[in-house]
Amino acid sequence: MKREAISLIVLAMVIGFGQKLQAQYYLKFDMGYAAPMGEQSVPQFFDFNEESETLPFKKQNKISLGQGSHFNLGLGYNFSGKIGAELNLSYLWGSKRDSEIETSDDYFYRSLRGEMFSAIPSLVLIMPIKKPNMDFYSRVGLITSISSRMIYDTETLIDSNNADYQQRYIMSGSFALGFNAVMGLKWKKGKVNYFVELDYRALSYAPTKRSMQTSTINGSSNIHALSVHDRETVYLENIEVSNPAIVNDEEPLEVLISAYPFSSVGLNFGISINL
């Protein structure tokens, strides 16, 4: 009898402890828009207009591909009500940035857009406020991209042969590592809570390959007529450059690796559900 009573108490403690632990887990979802930060000039990415009504001009187009909509899904754990840990999965749908070069004979258009799926493990420090029932919190974590890509579109109009060339490339490969800092306010409503966050991210991304997806001349595809060298590019730490240049049509073009800014500062709104 005594043994059974002890077993019941132990079972009750285990269940109670388990429930208490379970109550400290929460799921969260938020979304928002991020403005660019740490914008950089990218080679060949400027506006030029020779046909301007005043004087021809060149205009710099500094960009950060972190600009755009962010969607975050996270799992959090509160150790004590004042300190916690979160793992967020984040998706960036980047805004398109473009440049135009217009000369008296020709027109060149280029656009770049980034997409990034990343995991962000973070430490959370919480300052509870009793009235109103809120948490003022901050979070610092590392951003590790799981999948990243950049969409690069070009259009070239050549007056002399009345041709319109359009190409789409996907730049991908490798991963980005950066940091994320967040300051937020959470309105605690019981099981479901609402929060608003200032979300700062600093990172750059260096793709390792570029692949042509589509290529048209005056609307007709010509991609099958192009060689591997025309369609594929690999970005390397080191390349050998010969004079005269040696071109192998069956090998991708080799170019030195470059990095693109993905830093941003944004505002996110979301809900969290205590499990």
Binding site: A206, L236, E237, N238, I239, E240, V241, S242, N243, P244, L256, I257, S258, A259
Partner: peptide, 10 residues
């Protein structure tokens, strides 16, 4: 004399 090695330096 006809080849150079280029190395990226971010």
């Amino acid at each position: 004399t006809s080849t150079e090695l280029e190395t990226a330096n971010l």
